[in-house]
C-alpha cells in the first residue's frame, strides 16, 4: 500500500486553509460578488477550486502509480479492471 505524496497532500491542504481555518478573514457581507455576500461567494468558489487542486494531486499520484508499475513490472492492484 502506498501513502500519498507530500506534494499532493499540500495541494489538498489548500482548500482546508482557504475554506475553513481562515473564516475570520472572509466572514463578511462586502464586497458583494455576483450579488452574493462575500462569505457565501467565497465558500461557493471553493466548490470549483477544490476540484482544480485535486486534479493537480491526481496527476501527481498517477505519475507515482506508473513509476511503481514500471518498477514492479506489472499492474498495481489499484489499476486492475473488474473483479477477479
Amino acid at each position: 500500500m502506498q501513502r500519498p505524496a507530500l506534494s499532493s497532500i499540500l495541494l489538498g491542504l489548500i482548500p482546508f486553509v482557504a475554506g475553513c481555518f481562515t473564516v475570520t478573514l472572509w466572514d463578511r457581507i462586502h464586497p458583494m460578488v455576483l450579488g452574493l455576500p462575500f462569505n457565501f461567494f467565497w465558500t461557493i468558489s471553493w466548490m470549483v477550486l477544490t476540484p482544480l487542486c485535486l486534479w493537480g494531486a491526481y496527476r501527481i499520484e498517477i505519475r507515482r502509480d506508473l513509476a511503481r508499475l514500471r518498477e514492479q513490472g506489472g499492474l498495481p492492484n489499484g489499476m486492475q479492471g473488474g473483479a477477479d
Partner: peptide
C-alpha cells in the same frame, strides 16, 4: 450564515476521500 458550513465542508470532505478511499478500497 451558519448554514454556509454546508457549502464549506462538502469540498473538504471530498479532499479527505481523495486520499483515503483508494487505500480503503485496496484493503
Amino acid at each position: 450564515a451558519p448554514v454556509f458550513y454546508v457549502v464549506g465542508y462538502w469540498p473538504l470532505g471530498c479532499v479527505v476521500g481523495f486520499f483515503i478511499l483508494p487505500l480503503i478500497w485496496e484493503a
